[in-house]
Design a protein around this nucleic acid. Sequence first.
DNA 1: GACCGGATCCGT
DNA 2: CGGATCCGGTCT
Length: 173
Amino acid sequence: MLERDFFLNDTLTVAEKLIGKRMSFKNNEGRVLKGIITETEGYFGDDEASHAAKGITKRNKPMFSFGGITYVYFIYGMYYCFNVSTEKEGFPSAVLIRGIKLEDPEFIVQGPGKMCKVMGISLLHNNLDVCHKNGTFNFYETGLLPKIQTSGRIGIKKNIHLPWRFFTNPKDL
DNA sequence: GACCGGATCCGT
DNA sequence: CGGATCCGGTCT
């Protein structure tokens, strides 16, 4: 299982290294969904595209936590997006999980809103510790070494040129 | 209390 | 490219 020190790392390092890792999620019915992460993005407080750009609020508070805390938010009146905080306590940063290749049965999900919808992630799953053993969320090593590409982040208007999106071809996994 | 824009998705 | 749909943040 990925422990606290993994999530305390630099945000872009965490975002890149999460590609090819396994995520498990215990949904509201107690069923455990597992899959390999295929797409992520990094966000910082010192970044006009980030929710934390204007300081701490009730909503973005998990971004200010030490690494390994979930940040789920509601957007466009219809979707949830799932992030995990990174770096040290008080430093606003998180990685948005944008895509996953679910196992058993195999199913590729691309897009953060769609991923939350398919898996059943909602605000109930905000502010949880992914380093808690047998928690709602846990992350694991897989030994996979996926070929990772980068690009600008999706759906933002500021800092669109920064190559802070990381992804691999789900079909290569 | 009102207004505005958004880390999305899907169909056209 | 626009519509769905509603919450958080900001200003009054």
